[in-house]
């Protein structure tokens, strides 16, 4: 009998599969395709202190093996989530990872307090949204700022605090260490890579917001590399994500150092992707005689 249970920040996940915030709404829509209890947990849509309308459409453009998006954090606000959404998810059978983005340190602290009083298992702090002026990217690119923000929020946070890192930085390891030193219980990476696509005939960008975040298989090698590098320098566990399309991709992220792995953009193509992923993982473990999935975390053997 193989074991796929993962203890992440003191919480038991029945398997290492979660979803990336922003690709899964609040679970309602994808719950019509796959029972949410198939997942170890899922990342809920990013919340802000107050409701946000988001950016103008078009908000999506296809690129080679991926997409650019510029949703701009459209969401009903943290208070609505706490009062209405989270209670409806209480018995969904998977852990809920609430995700928050702030304009100021104070907003992050207030949201951490509000979310601490919900049934969310983990609070993920987005310091790396590329699509809004004050959606965190300004926080996420400077190590000292990340350290101070994490330390401040940690004081108001009664749940495990996971800091979501941006790949749009010079040194991801410096940012990761700064978050760990600030008291983060875990890290998640990568958020999207800032990108752009131009219609050569109209000479205008496809996205109304001009630039957006790149995700999908195109970013996977970058994400795997960053998870590997971060795993080498921190002790706290990692949620890896970026272009996962199969169980083999999940294994690859875990070998690089991820304890949990998120499905994201791949869901748009295959809404029941998790069923294939779980089958692939079981087959891999059987083929390689692995009894406990924890044994492969960070088990890459360098050349």
């Amino acid at each position: 009998m193989i074991n796929t249970k993962i203890n992440f920040c003191g919480i038991e996940f029945k398997n290492p599969i979660v979803t990336a915030s922003g690709t899964f709404g609040f679970g309602e829509e994808y719950g019509e395709y796959v029972d949410l209890s198939e997942y170890g947990g899922f990342g809920a849509k990013g919340l802000t202190r107050y409701p946000r309308e988001g950016n103008k459409a078009p908000r999506i453009a296809e690129t080679p093996s991926g997409i650019l998006n510029s949703v701009g954090l459209q969401n009903p606000g943290v208070e609505y989530f706490a009062a209405h959404t989270m209670p409806s998810l209480k018995n969904c059978g998977a852990h809920v990872i609430a995700n928050m983005s702030g304009n100021t340190v104070e907003e992050y602290c207030e949201m951490a307090e509000i979310l601490s009083d919900t049934d969310a298992a983990i609070i993920e702090m987005n310091i790396s949204c590329p699509n809004v002026k004050h959606g965190g990217l300004a926080f996420g690119t400077d190590a000292k700022t990340v350290n101070e923000l994490t330390a401040a929020v940690k004081k108001h946070c009664k749940k495990p605090l996971v800091v979501k890192l941006s790949p749009n930085v010079t040194s991801i390891t410096d940012i990761a260490k700064a978050a760990e030193d600030g008291g983060a219980d875990g890290l998640s990476l990568i958020n999207t890579l800032l990108g752009m696509k131009i219609d050569i005939h109209s000479r205008r960008p496809i996205l109304a917001n001009n630039m957006g975040g790149l995700s999908g298989p195109a970013v996977k090698p970058v994400a795997v590399r960053m998870v590997y590098q971060v795993h080498q320098v921190v002790k706290i566990p990692i949620i890896g994500m970026g272009g996962v399309m199969s169980g083999d991709d999940v294994i690859e992220f875990m070998l690089a150092g991820a304890s949990l792995v998120a499905l994201g953009t791949g869901l748009f193509v295959k809404p029941d992707l998790i069923l294939d992923v779980k089958r692939d993982i079981a087959a891999y473990m059987e083929r390689h005689g692995i009894e406990d999935i924890n044994d492969i975390i960070g088990a890459v053997r360098l050349n």
């Binding site: 922003g22 309602e28 829509e29 988001g54 459409a57 078009p58 908000r59 998006n69 949703v71």
Partner: peptide
């Protein structure tokens, strides 16, 4: 008509005002 992602209402990319 709008450029779409998931097609089922989860990803919020195909909005109209």
């Amino acid at each position: 008509e709008q450029r779409m992602g998931c097609g089922i209402g989860a990803c919020l990319v195909c909005t109209c005002e």
